[in-house]
Amino acid sequence: MIDTVVRVEARTPAGRAACPGCKCWSRRIHGSYLRFPRDLPTAGKFVVVSLRVRRFVCEEESCERMTFAEQVPGLTRRFGRRTERLRSMLVSVGLALAGRAAPG
């Protein structure tokens, strides 16, 4: 099983992130957690992505958000369970099939 899996561990190098609510930048880290977005296979091997994501405290007092999670442009979306690469491939397959089920 080890030969069929590629494990990718990643985190962002940025020291700050923009709040999606008020767009103000914050450097104050509240904590972090792991995300495991699904990705396309690579070279015939299953890819497991382990992404360390930080939660930031919004420093703008008038903002309704207290905390927010950083996003990785081109890799993840808010509440996304798939990488952008896998999402766009699934969209392409759906458009190619024009909503019909695949022949089975």
Rank of each mutant, 00 (worst) to 15 (best):
F68W: 06
C58N: 03
R87A: 14
V5M: 05
V47S: 11
K45A: 10
T12N: 05
S26Y: 07
P13K: 12
R77F: 15
E9V: 12
I29D: 08
A69Y: 07
L95W: 08
S62I: 04
V6T: 15
L34G: 11
T83G: 07
T83D: 12
Y33A: 03
V93D: 12
Q71T: 11
G44M: 05
E60Q: 15
C24K: 02
A17H: 03
V72Q: 00
R38N: 13
R38T: 14
L90H: 11
G31N: 11
V8Y: 15
K23G: 13
D3A: 08
E64R: 03
L90A: 11
F46N: 04
K23M: 02
S26R: 06
L97Q: 05
S32C: 02
D3M: 02
D3S: 12
T83N: 02
A102K: 02
A102H: 08
A96L: 02
R52P: 01
I2M: 03
P13F: 08
C22P: 14
R27M: 10
G44P: 00
Q71G: 10
G44V: 02
A18Y: 00
K23V: 04
S50I: 03
V5K: 01
F46V: 05
T42A: 03
L97G: 11
V5T: 12
W25G: 01
L97A: 14
L34Y: 13
T67S: 05
S88N: 10
R35E: 10
R52Y: 14
G104L: 12
R27H: 14
R35N: 10
Q71A: 12
A98T: 08
D3T: 06
A14G: 14
S88C: 06
R54T: 06
C63T: 07
V47F: 08
G99Y: 04
R81Q: 11
R55A: 00
R82G: 07
V47K: 02
P103A: 15
R54N: 09
R27E: 15
V72D: 06
E61L: 06
D39M: 07
P37V: 10
P103F: 11
A102T: 07
R54Y: 11
R54F: 11
A18K: 05
W25M: 07
L51C: 10
V6S: 15
